[in-house]
Structure formats: structure tokens, C-alpha cells
Simulated assay, not measured.
Amino acid sequence: MTSSRLAHRTLVAIAYVLMLAPVVMVIMTSFFRDEIVSFPPSGLTFRWYFNAWTRREFANGFLLSLQVALIATAIGVAFGTAAALALSRSTIAAKSAINTLLLGPLAVPGIVAGTALYLFYLKLENRLDLDIVGTLPGLIAAHVLLTIPWTVRVVTASLQGLDTIAEEAAANLGARPWTVFRRVTLPMLRPGIVAANMFSFIQSFESLELTLLLVGAGKTTLPVAMLNYLEFRMDPTLAAVATVQILVVAALMLVTDRFVKLSRVV
């Protein structure tokens, strides 16, 4: 093995260690017996998992996060896929500006976006005399702003490697535009759309900063419920909840990669 290859592998190994060390530490902490985390621990236990299971705010937060993430993903992926197709196939002069606008939420810090949406919702409430802040529709609308940029980004990347010969052949054989899209274009975009669903769901499910100011009393998502718990307790219960989140996300990525190779579209 040459010295350059050894150095490359060493750097890759260090990068993996730096990325995975916090995850491993959270998982390890969730089994510590002591209420105040200390090293080395006095023993191991599943107590904190049972404690998290019995606390209603975590269960309710998980269900609300799941509901919001599923609905926001369905809406955002549909609109984002349509936007990616329109931008990739159009020749309008403002295409670059529109693409930048759609990807803008990825560059804005979550707490800034959440504050801006909160103030915007307050103005809408005054104008329309409707309750928006703290409602499920308002929260879903905010999370759609997270899912659309990810969809546009992933689907656009998938479209760049798409061969249009099959679409042209179907059109030449008499297929209508909708038939070409449904039977040719959409199946070829399936890897990108599946990846967009996965990334959009994860971003919505784990969103804290954007959600913090938009939830109502008694209706908090799981990340907000974890933050509220942290204000009063410092035991490893949160590490147990975070471990479950890590396992859910890891399982989702493994299942997605089983049917769609993420390395081809990401």
C-alpha cells in the first residue's frame, strides 16, 4: 500500500470517527444507570427507555411529528417534483432565480425561518381573523417549506442524468404528454422521488428550530417535547428517546437504499 493511499484511508477513518462518535456516545449514555451522567457509569440499565415510554408527552409528540412529517412530505414532494420538472425542461430567463428561490429555505437558519413564519402568521391572523399559530395546518404549511427544497434538489439531480430518448420515442409513437409522463418519465424518476421522500420526512420529523414558535399548548412535536423535558430534568431519558430516533432514521435509510441505491441520486 502506497503512502498516499494509506494517508487517504486514515483521513477517511478519522472523518467517520468524528461523525459517528456523537451518535455512539448518545446510544451509550441511554444505558447508563446514574441519573447524572458520569464516566465510568456505575452500571447499565433499560430504566430510561421505560421512563420515556411512560411519559405521555413523548408519545403524543412522536405521533404529532409523524403526522406532520407524512403530510408535509406528501405535499412537498408533489410540488417539488413538479417544480423540478418545470425548471429542468423550461427555457425561461428567470429559471436560475426561481431555482434559487426554491432552494432558499435550505440556506436560512431554522430559528430565523421559524421567527419569520411566526410573525407572518400573526399578521395573517389579524387580517383574516383566523387562528394559524399553534394549529396543525399552520405547522404543516411551515414544514412544507422544508420538504420542497429537498425535493427540488434531489429530483433535479436525478433529472440531470435522465436520458430523454425513451420519452421522445413514446411521443413519436403517439403517446400523449400525460401518458409519457406517467409511464415513462415518472418510473425513471422513481429513485430520485423515493430519496426525496426519505430526506423530506427526516428533515420534517426532526425539525426543532422551525417548529419551536409554531406549536400550540399541549400539541408539541417530539423535538419540542424533548427540549421542554430538558428544562426540568437532566437524566438519560432524552438519550433513550434520541436513540430510538436514530434507529428509526437508520432503518428508514436502509430500507430506502434496499430498493433505491441512494448513492446514484445523492
Rank of each mutant, 00 (worst) to 15 (best):
A171K: 05
V255S: 10
G76A: 08
L212G: 03
R182N: 02
L18G: 04
V265F: 04
L162Y: 05
Y118V: 04
L139I: 10
L101S: 12
M226V: 08
F39W: 15
L63G: 02
L102V: 09
W53S: 11
F58V: 09
T164W: 12
L145M: 14
R190T: 06
V17F: 15
D129G: 11
A74T: 11
L6V: 13
F79C: 11
E206F: 06
I92P: 03
N197D: 03
T237N: 08
Q203S: 09
L44E: 05
L238E: 00
T164V: 12
A72K: 01
M1L: 12
F199Q: 03
L18A: 15
D34M: 06
P191G: 02
R258P: 05
V249G: 07
E209L: 06
T211W: 06
A83T: 10
L162G: 01
G218E: 10
G80L: 00
I193C: 03
R182A: 11
E57R: 10
L101R: 08
P236Y: 05
A175Y: 01
I27Y: 05
Y49M: 08
L6R: 15
V24E: 04
T81N: 01
A93V: 13
F31P: 02
T179E: 10
K261V: 08
R258K: 14
H8F: 15
R183G: 05
A74R: 01
M188P: 00
I71D: 00
F46E: 09
S30D: 03
S158P: 02
E231K: 15
N51A: 15
L124N: 07
R33Y: 11
F79Q: 04
R127Q: 14
G80K: 00
H8N: 11
A113V: 09
V224A: 04
L212P: 04
V265L: 07
A170N: 05
N99R: 15
A225H: 06
N99C: 08
S96D: 14
F79R: 01
G61I: 02
V17E: 08
V26R: 04
T54A: 13
P187E: 00
Q67C: 12
N60F: 10
A93I: 12
A166S: 12
F181K: 03
I140W: 02
A251H: 07
L122M: 14
E168F: 03
A7L: 15
G216D: 08
L44T: 11
R153D: 00
L208R: 03
T256F: 05
G104N: 13
V26G: 06
V152L: 01
A59T: 12
A225W: 01
A13W: 10
L44N: 04
W48R: 07
A15D: 07
